[in-house]
Design a protein around this nucleic acid. Structure first.
Lengths: 370, 370
DNA sequence: CTGAAAGCGCTTACAG
DNA sequence: CTGAAAGCGCTTACAG
C-alpha cells in the first residue's frame, strides 16, 4: 500500500479544465446555466477524472452548521440499536450524520454511572466538532448537566430519550410506559390471573421508565377487586435479579404471573422457574417489556410489550431537526409519548385454577339459555 | 425555549479581553509563555465567561484531517456492539471520533444485501466529510467496491472486519475462526461425542467466517477415527434455520452434538430440541459461537466460543490510526487474527452412551496397575 | 510581549 | 459568460 494519496482540490479541477476556481465551483454546484456547454462539460469531466468531491467541512465553516448530531446513547440492547437505526435514517434523509458515542469502556457495557471526567470530555469533543444537536441518554445527561453550562446555555438543541423530567427543560421522546404497562396487566387479568409479582429495575433517578411501568401495572390492578400484588426491586447494582426471581417464586404470595419490567428480567424469571421445576406457561405466566431480539427465541417465546424503538429514534431526530429549522419553536419542552404494542406469544396462559373455571364459564356462556 | 444562541467566536473573546484575535488564540492554545500574566488571565476569563471552545472544523480545514473515522458497521448483535465499543474507545483515546452509519432502513436490521444506490450515497456522505479512515462491514465493502474508485484510489485507509479476501487488498482484522472452531470441536471430542451435525450460515461470499468455522471443525474431526459428521446450510434468505434444526434432529445421523456456526443458530437448535422432547445436555449437546449477550441466559446456559469483540474493534481502529501516522506502512495488507476463547457452560455433556464408558475408562485409569 | 497578514478549501455576491 | 475579491473561524510564521 502506497502512502496515502492527497485528496484532489478544486484548484486542480479548475486548472485541468482551464477555468477559474470560481467557475469550477459554480458549475459543479449546478449553476451551469451561466456557462457555455463545452465549459461545463470540461469541468465536470475534470472533476470526475480527478475524483473530486465537495468538502463539507468548508460548507460547515461557511454556514455555521456541521450537519452533524451528537448521539450519546449506548447500544445497550436491541431496543437501543433499533432506536439508533431510527435516528440514523431520519438524519440521513435530511443529509445529516450522527456521531454516536457513549461513556464507559468497551468491556463494561452497560455503563450506568458515567464518570464525570469522562462525560465532560466526551461532550467537549462533540461540541468542538460543532454538532448541531444532541440526543442524549438520560443518565449521561444528568451526569453532565451538573458540570457544565453547555447544555443549559441553549446553543444547541437537546433531546432526551425515554426519560421524563420537566425540571431539566429538555425536549423528550419516550415510550408511553403507562399505556404499555396497562396492556400487559389487562392481558393477564383477562386470562384470569389475580396474584401478581412485579420484578422491577432499580428505579434510579434516571430510570423513570421503571417507575412508570410499575405504576401503570398497579393502576390496572387496582381497578379489579381481589387482586394480590407485590413489587420486588433489585439491589442498587442491579445484579441480584436471579436471586430476587427465586424469592418471588418461593414467596407466600405464590404469584401465578410475573410481570417483568424488562425482557432482561423475564429471562431471570425463566431461569428461576426452571430451577424450581415450574413450567411456563402451565404453572407460571411471565411477561416482559421491550420485545428485545432474543424474546422470540426464548422457550417458550415471550409475551411482551413491543416498544416502537425505530419510531422513537425517528421522532427524536425530527425534534432536533425541527428545532434547527424553526419548525418547532415552542418555549415549553416537547414531551412526546410513543405508544407500545402487546405481543402475545406463549409465555402466558390462564392460571391452573382459573383455567378450569374459565373453561366452565365459557361452556356455560356457550350453552343457549332457552 | 428561546431561539438558539449563537456560539461565541474568538473575536468576542479577544474584544472582551482587549487583545488581538491572534493573541487570544495563542493564549488559549497554551502559548502563554510569551504573554504577561494579567493578559493571559483576562483572556482565559473572557473565554470562560462567554463559553468559548475551539472549533475543530477550522483545525480540520487547516490540517486536512477531520479526526473522524467512518464506521460502516451495523450493530447487528452484541458481538458487533462490543466491537464498536472497542473501535470507539481506541479512537477516543487518539482524539478521533467515529461516524457510525449503516445501509438499510430502521425496520430491517440486519440488512445483508445493501442497495447499491444507498451504499454509494452513504459512502459519499462520509467522504464529503473528509473522514480520515473507513472501517467497513464486508458485505457493504463488496457492494460499494464495484461502484466506485474511492476505495481503490487509496486516499483513505480502509479496514475490513471479520473478512478475509486478499484480492481486495484491504487491511483486515478478524477472529481466528479456525482456532475458535477447533476449540469447540476438541471440547466435544473430549467429552466423547462422535456423531456431529454442523448448522452453518449461508456461506455467502461475504461470510468467510461461516466457511472458516466449518473448516476448522471439520479439520479437528478428520483427525479422529470413527467420527460421523454432516454439514447443514440454511437457504439463501437464511430464514429456515428452525426447519433445518428439526431436520438435523430427525436425520438418520442421530447426532449427539450440534455445533452451531453462531449463537443465533444454537437458539434454533434449542427450540427444535424442545419440540422433540430432547433435553440439553442430557440427550443432546449444543455449542454456539460468539458468546452473544443472551447466551448466558439460555436454559441451560450455552457453551460457546467467545470472540474478543472489543479487542477486534480496538485493533481495527489501531490499524487505521497506524496507516494515518505512518506507523504501519507495509505495502501488503495487514491480516490480523484475534484468538477466541472457549466458554464451557451447561449445554454440553458426555453423550448418553459414552457417559458410562468414559466413567469406566476413568476408573480403570485411576486404578494402579500394580 | 503583541499585532498584521497570509492561508486552510471553497462559495458567493460583485464587477466586468 | 467568466474572473477577482472578500469571507467562513481560526492558526501560525513573520514583523515589530
Amino acid at each position: 500500500m502506497n502512502p496515502m494519496n492527497p485528496r484532489p482540490r478544486l484548484q486542480h479541477v479548475a486548472t485541468l479544465a482551464e477555468v477559474s476556481i470560481a467557475a469550477a465551483s459554480r458549475i459543479l454546484r449546478g449553476d451551469t446555466a451561466e456557462f457555455s456547454g463545452p465549459t461545463c462539460e470540461r469541468v465536470v469531466k475534470a472533476a470526475k477524472q480527478l475524483g473530486w468531491r465537495r468538502n463539507l467541512l468548508v460548507h460547515s465553516l461557511q454556514t455555521g452548521r456541521s450537519r452533524t448530531v451528537g448521539v450519546v446513547v449506548p447500544p445497550y440492547d436491541s431496543f437501543w440499536v433499533n432506536l439508533l437505526s431510527g435516528v440514523n435514517s431520519r438524519l440521513a434523509a435530511a443529509d445529516f450524520l450522527p456521531i454516536n458515542v457513549w461513556p464507559g469502556d468497551a468491556e463494561n457495557l452497560p455503563y450506568f454511572e458515567a464518570g464525570e471526567q469522562e462525560s465532560v470530555q466526551l461532550m467537549n469533543r462533540l461540541l468542538e466538532r460543532w454538532v448541531d444537536g444532541l440526543i442524549l441518554w438520560p443518565p449521561f445527561a444528568m451526569t453532565y448537566h451538573a458540570h457544565s453550562r453547555d447544555l443549559t446555555d441553549n446553543t444547541v438543541p437537546v433531546v432526551l430519550i425515554d426519560y421524563h423530567a420537566e425540571h431539566l427543560g429538555f425536549d423528550t421522546v419516550a415510550t408511553d410506559e403507562f399505556q404499555g404497562a396497562a396492556l400487559v396487566a389487562e392481558h393477564l387479568l383477562e386470562l384470569g390471573h389475580r396474584r401478581f409479582a412485579f420484578i422491577g429495575g432499580r428505579e434510579t433517578a434516571a430510570q423513570t421508565w421503571a417507575q412508570e411501568r410499575r405504576q401503570g401495572v398497579e393502576k390496572a390492578f387496582s381497578r379489579v377487586p381481589g387482586v394480590s400484588y407485590k413489587n420486588w426491586k433489585l439491589n442498587s447494582r442491579g445484579d441480584d435479579g436471579l436471586e430476587v426471581a427465586r424469592r418471588i417464586l418461593r414467596s407466600s404470595l405464590q404469584p401465578t404471573a410475573i410481570v417483568a419490567a424488562t425482557d432482561h428480567q423475564a429471562v431471570l424469571a425463566y431461569q428461576a422457574a426452571a430451577e424450581l421445576g415450574l413450567r411456563i406457561p402451565e404453572d407460571l405466566s411471565v411477561t416482559g417489556f421491550a420485545d428485545l431480539d432474543f424474546a422470540v427465541g426464548m422457550i417458550p417465546p415471550l409475551t411482551t410489550v413491543r416498544q416502537r424503538a425505530a419510531e422513537i429514534g425517528r421522532q427524536a431526530a425530527s425534534v432536533i431537526l425541527g428545532r434547527l429549522d424553526g419548525t418547532i419553536s415552542s418555549a415549553d419542552p416537547v414531551d412526546m409519548r410513543i405508544p407500545a404494542d402487546l405481543v402475545v406469544r406463549s409465555s402466558t396462559a390462564p392460571p391452573r385454577a382459573a383455567a378450569a373455571s374459565t373453561a366452565r364459564r365459557k361452556k356455560t356462556a356457550g350453552v343457549p339459555r332457552t
